[in-house]
Each structure stands twice: as C-alpha cells, then as structure tokens.
C-alpha cells in the first residue's frame, strides 16, 4: 500500500488529537464536586454528543467513538487488529471461563475486538474455537482443553497470556512501521517483566516461569527467565541493565506506579510518530493517548463519585 493512502487518516487523527483534554482541563475536572457537573464539563469539551449521564455510559460511549473514528479513517482495517490484540486474548479468557461455568459470555466481552461478536456465541456453543477466534483459535482450544483437564485457572491463564505476548512480539517483528513495531515490542517486553516479577514475588518454580514468560524483543528471554528463577535480587539486577530499569525500580515501590510508568512510556514511544504524516503510527499513537485519557477521566470521575457519595452520607449522618 502507498504511504500516501494514510493522508486522510493521519489528518483526521491529528484533528481529533487537538480536541483532547489539556492539563488545564484535567485540573478543572478534578475540581468538580459531583459527577453531574464533571460530565457536563466533558460534554462542553466535545467528549460526548449523546445524553449519557452515568460514568460507565460516558466512558464506553467515548471508547466506541474512538474505535468508530479509527475504523472510518484507516485505509486497511486489518491493521487495527494490533490495537485490539490484548482485548481479543482477554475475550478468549472470558469465553473459556464462561464455557466452564455456563455463564453468558456477552456481558464479559471487552471492546474493541476483531472478533465477530454476533457469531461468537453460536461458535462457542459448538466449541468451534477456530471459527470463533480465527487466527487465535488454536490458543483458545488449547486453553479450553487445559482448563477441562486440569481444572486449573492459572494454567489456562498462562497459555493465553503467553500466546498474547508472543503474538505482539511477532507482530512487532514483522511490521514495517517502526513506531508500531516499537510499541508492540514495549507491550510484549513489559508484560514479560510483570509476569517475571509476579513469579518471583509468589515464589513460582522454574518450569512455571519458563512456561509463562513469552518472546522478548529488546530483552533477552534467556536472561530474564534465568534471573527470575534465581530470585528477586538477580531479577532486579538484570532489569537494571536494560531499558526498563526505571520501571523496575517503581515496581519495587508499588505496582500502580509501574503501570503508570508503562502508560507514560508507551505514549512517549508512540509519540515518536509526531513528525510522520504518511503511516499507521500516528493512528497507533492517538489510540493509546486517547485510551489513557479515557482511563484517567474514568479514574477522576470514580473518585468524584465516591467523594460526593461519602459527603452525602456524612450529611445524612449529621442530620
């Protein structure tokens, strides 16, 4: 495909980027006393044109809008697949659990996804994982069979997480777009680091660690596995020699700090596309920026909601 085919999509994404919330907007948002005022402010900022009034609806509507914009703009829809890879694998996890517990799957679908949601239910009932999850069908089938045989949720999760990491790493290796490739590498590498650190903290054995850690791009898988087997200090010592040393230090303090670092670093990497006018990377960058914005707004609205409820309760108690 000619790179100039991205002219429409990049211009549209840049225009949408200029409408994102600024730091001042976030400061104002934090100052609202109740969610009603906060949502009204978001509407003024063009966040949603609908009449959604509760947090969950506002957030999901904004996510839908984001996905709609990308779907309308990108010349090759297949490229969007990489942005929902993690959701697709999450949906496999949810599907396997729902099948085992006879729970309706529809309520647990994570959007956006490349899966055909309309056909998913029928295909799952027939246990036709290849029809339901296409190129990820093998993983779904393996995870389901493991879950049935071993009745171990953890083994099932390892299979799916490992497949997701390998998928991202391979995608990053094969894609021509440099920034998107870096983004995929970062996601697969940080996921591996999280798994390694959790394995160390929970004292997992060698075979478990070997099974759980997937393909790495800018890390050495062998060294990561070997250091995780040896223990926490060795793992931190190894990570200290990599590009992820700042993140690893934060993990020692708290997991949420590490997650925040990952989000910020991901946007930093994706923002390398800011001088590009003809490639997929500005789309990838906008997607992660907007997703982070939505995540932050969700967090602020939830805090405002909890705070206003506690104030109301306190008021009632005082009365």
């Amino acid at each position: 495909m000619r790179d100039t085919n991205y002219a429409y999509c990049v211009a549209r994404v840049r225009a949408a980027e200029s409408k994102m919330l600024s730091e001042d907007d976030f400061s104002r948002l934090k100052g609202f006393k109740n969610t009603f005022e906060a949502i009204r402010f978001l509407k003024e900022k063009g966040w949603t044109s609908s009449d959604k009034d509760n947090i969950r609806e506002v957030i999901s509507f904004e996510k839908e809008n984001l996905w709609k914009l990308l779907n309308e703009s990108v010349p090759d829809k297949n490229e969007l697949g990489v942005l929902c890879t993690l959701n697709d694998f999450f949906n496999i996890k949810a599907a396997v659990k729902c099948l085992l517990t006879d729970t309706p799957f529809e309520n647990y679908i994570m959007m956006p996804t490349t899966l055909d949601v309309a056909l998913l239910k029928d295909n799952l009932l027939k246990r036709d994982f290849y029809a339901a999850f296409k190129d990820k069908g093998e993983t779904a089938e393996k995870a389901y069979n493991t879950a049935v045989k071993s009745e171990s949720g953890q083994s099932t999760e390892i299979i799916i997480d490992r497949a997701a990491i390998d998928y991202m790493a391979r995608y990053g290796e094969n894609i021509d777009d440099k920034v998107t490739s870096k983004v995929c590498s970062f996601i697969s590498d940080t996921s591996n680091i999280k798994i390694a650190l959790r394995c160390v903290l929970t004292g997992k054995d060698e075979s478990f660690i070997n099974e759980a850690i997937g393909l790495c791009r800018s890390l050495s898988r062998e060294k990561l596995v070997a250091s995780a087997i040896k223990g926490k200090d060795e793992l931190y010592a190894y990570l200290d020699t990599t590009a992820y040393k700042d993140g690893a230090k934060l993990f020692e303090k708290s997991f949420s700090d590490f997650e925040k670092w990952c989000d910020e670093r991901l946007i930093e990497i994706a923002s390398e596309s800011r001088y590009t006018s003809f490639s997929f990377s500005p789309v990838c960058c906008y997607y992660y920026k907007k997703l982070t914005e939505i995540k932050n707004v969700n967090m602020i609205l939830s805090i405002i909601s909890a705070f206003s409820e506690s104030v109301e309760r306190q008021g009632e108690a005082d009365v």
Binding site: A7, Y8, V10
Partner: peptide, 14 residues
Amino acid sequence: GIAGEAGAGLLTEK
C-alpha cells in the same frame, strides 16, 4: 489528490 485526501480527513473533524 494527496493534499485533498488529507484535507478531507481534517474537514471531517473541523
């Protein structure tokens, strides 16, 4: 054509 495609993208939003 190239400039027009980009223009259409921008005009969709602004």
